[in-house]
Every structure is written in C-alpha cells, then in structure tokens.
Nucleic acid binder design. Sequence first.
DNA 1: GCTATCTGTTACCTATTGGTAAGTAGTTAC
DNA 2: GTAACTACTTACCAATAGGTAACAGATAGC
Lengths: 118, 118
Amino acid sequence: MAEKSKLSDSCLRSIQGIRDTQDLLSGKWKIPIIGALYFNGKFRFMDLGRHIEGIAPKVLSKELKDLEMNHLVKRTVKDTMPITVEYELTPQGRSLKKVIEAMGEWGTDYRKAVLANS
Amino acid sequence: MAEKSKLSDSCLRSIQGIRDTQDLLSGKWKIPIIGALYFNGKFRFMDLGRHIEGIAPKVLSKELKDLEMNHLVKRTVKDTMPITVEYELTPQGRSLKKVIEAMGEWGTDYRKAVLANS
DNA sequence: GCTATCTGTTACCTATTGGTAAGTAGTTAC
DNA sequence: GTAACTACTTACCAATAGGTAACAGATAGC
C-alpha cells in the first residue's frame, strides 16, 4: 500500500519541472549571463565578462559551456583576426521570457515588501 | 565615463529580482517543501518529512527555518500531547504562484523538447 | 624582440551544501 | 521498564561551487 503519497501526479510533475528549471539556471552567474544576452542580443567573450561585474574568465567559460550544453546559448566562432567568439541565446533560451519576468517581478515585489516592514 | 554599462537600470533591477528569488528558493529542498505546502495546505514536521522522499530531519529543519526567516512559511506549535508543530505557507509564500507556474511549465516543456530530440 | 589583445585553460585553495548516524527531551502505550 | 512517537539537534564527513593567479597559443602593433 502506497499510503504516504497524497501529492497528485500533476503536482509532482510540476515540482519536477521547477527543479529542472532551477538546475538549468543554478549557480551565481547563469542568470546575469542570460540576462545580459536577453537584453542585449549578442556578446563576445570578453565583452560579456566586462558587463558582468566580478566574474572570472574561468567561471564565465564554464557557465557558458553549461548553458551551451543545455541548448540555451549558441556559440559562434568568427574567423576574424584575431578570432572572436559570439554568444547569443537560442530560441529555447529566449523562451525563458515568462520565467524571467515572473521571477523578476516577484523578486522586486518581495524586496519592496521586506524594505517596507523594516 | 561609465563606458561599460550598456544594460539599463530596469534590466539590472529585473536581474536583481531574479537573483533574490533564486536565493530564497535555493538549494535542493526548498521547492519540494514549498510545493508540498502549496498543494496540501498544512503539514506537521514528520508528515512533511515523509512526503518529501529522501530528506533528512536535519536538512528539513534547517530549510524550514530559512523559509520561516524569509516569511514564506509560518510555524505554529499546537499544545497537544505530544506537542505537534504545523507548517504552512504565508500569504507571501502563496504569492509565489506565478513563479511556481511559470517555472513548472517551462521545465516540463523543456523536458519534452529534450526527450523529443534524443 | 616586446607588449597587448583575443579566448580561454590549469593548478590550487576555501567555503558552503548536503549527507549519515546518533543523541536529546518529553509523552504515551504495553 | 522498555519501546515508540513527537520534534528536533549535534558531530562528523564528502562533494561541489566558486575564487585567485598564472599561463598558453595565436595574431598584431611598435
């Protein structure tokens, strides 16, 4: 008898989805990276690094690889001299719009509420 | 001259909000906890632990404290014998509705898309 | 030849996260 | 009295995240 499980399948599926989303956006830097690409279109490696205050090249490189592996960011090498590399969001990355907006709004509202009660 | 900063204030505020949201929901267990309380209303400590597969009491306790400190969860001690403790979402916790839904939908869509391409 | 710029990589270190196992303290049932 | 249930806490450990600093290989300018 599966007596413990009161949570319905659709709820569990929803929680699963939320966890997937969180995993893909996990860490300190993925949101700032996606944000920069979301609001600006394209960036070269160093330009992106300069726009995101405090990020080290090692970390930027790793996070971009993660995002690329998960099909949220596209990497394009231009054969200029010296070579440059462009990063931009994929359609999947851009489809995060609603999530980005919902989190952004809730976060700013929360911040207002907390400041109001202090 | 602040030459580097192309991102507008509203974008930066939005990213700030997203980061706040992420911080409050960070870690492996906060979403499952909020989900259980969101879909079920109230839970006692041990019941909650039993509904969330694999969580240790130490971790559950710590996560609930975090959530309580951030005003997302309310803790109520009932003076029954033996005493029981009830946890439920605050109105602020329930206000995560849109975020939960957006993340849940995007995550399930993403999972479908990934499975379709494999 | 020396320096600078581009896109990263490598080695190393530390702090936080999360896990296991056991214990605490009070009450109840057998 | 002993086992079980309530709600936790404590001590210890391992894996991961993220930071610093230096380096690498290519090209271009002085």
